[in-house]
Design a protein around this nucleic acid. Structure first.
Lengths: 215, 215
DNA sequence: CTCTCGCCAATTGTCTAACAATCCAGTAGA
DNA sequence: TCTACTGGATTGTTAGACAATTGGCGAGAG
């Protein structure tokens, strides 16, 4: 995947670091300094800085001024807040999508890939995230889509954990996605929003329960 | 106002351009090129670029790749979408604020300034914007606050128009703020959210009516 | 022995200059 | 008249260097 048509240097660094953070190659809590990144990729520091700033904007890194950026360790409060915010945005986006009554092509493609993974087994985090991303960016409200994108980085961090610890069976995830799509196709905004809420809440509850078990 | 303790070059350019855009010194639709800004402030282009990128992130400028950034002309769809999104975020933030039952100090200060302006007359856009900004950033949900901040630039653009065309009397704005604060103090989340919704909706409706009159 | 002050290393913030890629309009040629 | 090309304008990207801030560590005073 990821045939980068016009691979620019900051983009390439961004993508590489993003993948490493999402699959936990970069341990949560570890520091990612501009100098280290610049050295590692053989570029000037400002180039590394741009990549890091994009990661920070996506919520995949956190930083304070004059401090090294760090991979976030999502605490209980973070998980609660993140899923509550996501619930608000994504259910609204799903409802407005249902008003239109059509499913974005990207969302359908992601859903089919997820069904395929459910049959063959394997990692499904990428497909799950792609589905939700497509759902939001297909919404008729550009600002809703923008806000969801800003949340998506941290969400993907969480999805990775749900998958890694087998907190939810992939078949159940796929089934819930199917029901959401059905409601959207039927143009039932209330039902679509409710189903989206339930889907997100289930993931949040599972993750919180796991967090409480391990802390 | 705004004693910048450590005025950095990009920040100074950002603030200056921001003020010029908000008071319409830069006409909507006009282009803001990196070179022009660099020349005007006597800095290198990347320095100007950073300032412009911040403006774009705040929604005060729009740009496509390899095209000059332009001051947005908010169309009817933009206004509808912006106020709908704002309604969703700000009412949720206000409700969670009411759950805590305490008013952020900044919000109270902005409210008092607005009351003062209501007595003496004059421009109130800055105080109105500061009030809403403080309300959201005082919310216990950092992500809600972050999303509201991302909307705030465009909101302020709208508030400026509401003020410039006298679409709402400042006394009415102040009175509605007062009612919201009262509900928050009382810890009544539902009432606070409803009042916030009504307040935002009134502004949106007034702006839309004005838009339809003039287009 | 403890507390405070000052220095030093680490890190980011910022700026300039230069080259590369892209887009658009206007023009020359078929 | 329509197409292809060229030139200017604009942004994208990068390297290198200097400045400012932070936090920790050690030395000296109490």
């Amino acid at each position: 995947m990821s045939a980068s048509p016009s691979a620019t240097m900051p983009d390439a660094i961004f993508e590489t670091l993003r993948a490493r953070i999402l699959d936990q190659s970069e341990a949560p809590g570890s520091a990612v300094t501009e100098s280290a990144v610049a050295l590692r990729f053989g570029v000037a520091r400002p180039t590394a800085k741009i990549a890091i700033e994009r990661l920070v904007a996506d919520g995949l890194l956190r930083r304070e001024t004059h401090r090294a950026a760090r991979v976030p360790e999502l605490g209980r409060d973070d998980i609660v807040d993140l899923f509550a915010s996501r619930l608000l945005i994504e259910s609204a986006a799903t409802a407005s999508l249902a008003d239109g009554g059509t499913i974005p092509a990207d969302a359908l493609a992601a859903h089919r890939e997820l069904l395929e993974v459910a049959r063959t087994g394997g990692a499904f985090a990428a497909q799950d995230a792609a589905f939700h991303r497509a759902l939001a960016s297909g919404s008729p409200s550009p600002r809703l889509a923008r806000m969801h994108a800003a949340l998506m980085g941290e969400i993907e961090l969480c999805i990775g954990q749900v998958q890694a610890h087998h907190l939810l069976p992939v078949t159940e995830v796929a089934a819930q996605h199917q029901r959401i799509l059905d409601a959207v196709t039927a143009g039932d905004a209330d039902a679509a929003a409710d189903l989206a809420r339930a889907h997100i809440d289930a993931a949040g509850q599972a993750l919180l329960a796991h967090y409480d078990r391990t802390h």
